[in-house]
Design a binder for these strands. Structure first.
Lengths: 169, 169
DNA sequence: TCTAGAACGTTGCACGCGCATGGACCTAGG
DNA sequence: CCTAGGTCCATGCGCGTGCAACGTTCTAGA
């Protein structure tokens, strides 16, 4: 990775303002994540990672996703997702289902209980994001930040593209 | 926290574009953090959190900071910082020093070895940030994002204000 | 002066994560 | 066919984190 030399602007260091941007980005992310985490935990006994999983499943066709696909979307390692799905399954929010075409494959499927729990928690989640980010910025700023994020992320991870090739079955 | 009702725009849900902004922010943060972490680890056997600690100590007056202050700056719980300083002390990069004015207080102090390790790792750190963020955005965008971040963060955590009241001693 | 409460840092504990590994299964090349 | 290598998910293990509780020290009020 390291592009120390040969980059467009091979300057040796960065300005305090630039460093501040990065540090503020870190702070923002940590702060928002913590608030969301605790809000969801106290109000619905649901971890943020669990919410993300339920959310991704809900918007997937057939309410189901291959473990691999799901892991990419929620930014978790495969092993991490295995354990998380274990817990969600134990709580009855998600079920595992075999894949007919590929005996190796496994689907995580959102159960009705999971959908209900998701619906119950969603207002908490959304108002957390709004209060901390979306409502603080105006429409113009929101457009600007969206454009910048699009530049910063490789197109193949712009967001959880719902369309993705998607596994068969 | 929850500001479900009474907000400026008490809409019930958010648009897909708004959700995408939040999700892309998550992705960006995770991606940058992981790259930084592994770059530092393979090149200098230094975890990102450790780098942050060394970095904050280096820019503090007297190369030292109270445990509490340091914990705030590196976004770690007090117990988390205790363990991290344990490790850094074991590796000789940081030392603990008592506080003359307050017998409860303890300083984490950057050692010469710590400063050397920091200097060695800094190019890796900086080029990671540049390659992934700073060089991708132009000056205008950088100004815009800085302004937005300033809006999003309470002034009392705009960044690691070096000036902070700071403990005596 | 004495005492109740707060602040500081550390420790016991349990949890969640990633890495490396393993077993089951699929697929392409002889 | 049959085998080598890849993919998929699960498991063993160690690590780093936060929470709650603890001892020590400071501080304010009677």
């Amino acid at each position: 990775m390291t592009v120390t030399t040969g980059g467009a602007q091979p300057r040796e260091s960065i300005s305090p303002e630039e460093l501040a941007v990065w540090r503020m980005l870190q702070r923002l992310q940590v702060r928002v994540t913590r608030v969301l985490e605790t809000d969801l935990l106290v109000a619905h006994d649901l971890a943020l990672a669990s919410y993300d999983v339920l959310s991704r499943l809900a918007e997937a066709p057939g309410r189901r996703l291959r473990m691999n696909d799901l892991a990419e979307r929620v930014l978790l390692s495969r092993s991490g997702l295995t354990r998380l799905i274990d817990r969600l399954q134990r709580d009855g929010l998600v079920a595992r289902e075999a894949c007919a075409d590929d005996a190796r494959g496994l689907f995580a499927v959102l159960t009705d209980a999971g959908a209900a729990r998701l619906a119950e928690a969603t207002p908490t989640y959304l108002s957390g994001i709004r209060a901390q980010i979306l409502d603080v910025l105006d429409a113009t700023e929101l457009r600007q930040v969206a454009a910048m994020l699009a530049k910063l992320l490789p197109e193949d991870e712009q967001s959880g593209r719902p369309g993705r090739p998607g596994q068969p079955c």
